[in-house]
């Protein structure tokens, strides 16, 4: 009976083959695209940064506006500093950042925006008070800002965005000195 059953060797119908492969390729493509996106940062260097919302912490607004978009800073150089109150290396650079901010504040050409990556409001307020920080600061709600700037992130990280809203450079880890911050920013000031 073995023979009997095998004799009619009809192949698999073409449309079945097509369906199977279409399904498998679709599934693989889905996983592949997902994996690729998971690996790559969203914003590319020398490309415009996709716009995002900024909801400032109370008392840390820019021009007393509680809610802004990144694009509102068009024409200014923006330094986005991603930090967290539980992050020890962030504490190293906090005083330097504040000092650099004092330096740029009057000119109005440069904006610092602190982005508080997954943190508690209490911890954040304590941290900001502890280091006498006065530049604008906002929580990274749902990691929306950090996931636009860089997916594989650690804290601290700083990004500089030029007057045209183009992502220019990143500093991973804390700044060592005020001069380093100035060099980081000044390169895109003119």
């Amino acid at each position: 009976m073995t023979e009997e059953n095998i004799v009619p060797k009809r192949g698999v119908a073409l449309w079945t083959q097509i369906t199977i492969f279409a399904f498998l390729v679709g599934l693989l493509a889905l996983v592949g695209i997902g994996l690729q996106r998971a690996q790559k940062p969203m914003a590319e260097f020398n490309q415009p940064v996709p716009d995002f919302d900024i909801f400032y912490y109370e008392g840390y607004e820019y021009n007393n506006t509680p809610k802004m978009k990144l694009s509102d800073f068009q024409g200014k150089v923006v330094l986005v500093n991603i930090w967290a109150s539980w992050c020890k290396p962030c504490e190293q650079e906090a005083p330097e950042l504040q000092e650099a901010w004092q330096f740029y504040k009057e000119g109005g050409q440069v904006v610092f925006v602190g982005v508080d990556y997954v943190d508690t409001p209490i911890g954040a307020k304590q941290y900001l008070t502890k280091f006498n920080i006065t530049f604008p600061n906002a929580p990274d709600l749902q990691s929306s800002i950090s996931s636009i700037l860089n997916r594989n992130m650690g804290v601290p990280e700083s990004y500089v965005i030029d007057r045209q809203g183009i992502l220019r450079s990143v500093k991973i880890g804390p700044f060592a000195s005020v001069n380093e911050i100035k060099a980081f920013v000044d390169a895109w000031l003119e």
């Binding site: 009976m1 492969f21 498998l24 693989l28 690729q36």
Partner: peptide, 30 residues
């Protein structure tokens, strides 16, 4: 990462193609 993924795609699809090719011969005996 991409290397691994590429390898999975190639082996998976080629094995599936082989299997479809031999499908009729693999019918049950009982």
């Amino acid at each position: 990462g991409p290397m691994f993924f590429g390898f999975i795609v190639i082996t998976f699809l080629s094995s599936t193609a082989l299997l479809i090719w031999r499908w009729p011969q693999l019918r049950a005996e009982t």
